[in-house]
């Protein structure tokens, strides 16, 4: 990777992680647009999720409903999203170099 690309990645990740840390402190805890509409007009019974996520509702279960647990879990998610995107995009490029070889 070129130096300026590396700089962009590091800078971009720092911005994302700062947002992730601040999010649970600054974000509104009001229901979002879909939840808010559902509270008023839902015609069916709400059901439980199909499976229990490891960090449900962006909280670390051991830390309860603290903004700290929120910050930790959102930072973890931000890094997972970054790595998963690198993985998927790199895989797509790998297919190209493979089809060029043949």
């Amino acid at each position: 990777m070129k130096a300026k690309d590396k700089k962009f990645v590091i800078g971009g990740l720092i911005v994302a992680i700062i947002i992730a840390i601040l999010a649970p402190f600054l974000a509104s805890s009001d229901p979002d647009g879909l939840e808010s509409a559902a509270e008023k007009i839902l015609l069916v019974e709400e059901t439980e999720p199909m499976f229990e996520a490891p960090l449900p509702d962006y909280l670390v279960p051991a830390l309860g409903e603290s903004p700290l647990g929120g910050a930790i879990s959102i930072v973890i998610g931000t890094i997972i999203a970054f790595l998963a995107m690198v993985g998927l995009a790199t895989t797509a490029r790998w297919f190209k170099s493979n089809s060029n070889d043949s």
Binding site: M1, D5, F8, V9, G12, L13, V15, A16, I17, I19, A20, A23, I74, G77, T78, I79, A81, F82, L83, A84, M85, V86, A89, T90, R93
Partner: peptide
């Protein structure tokens, strides 16, 4: 690829 990954991280946050 890194640009896309940075955007994924930013959007997640």
């Amino acid at each position: 690829v890194p640009l896309m990954a940075v955007l994924a991280a930013f959007i997640f946050a």
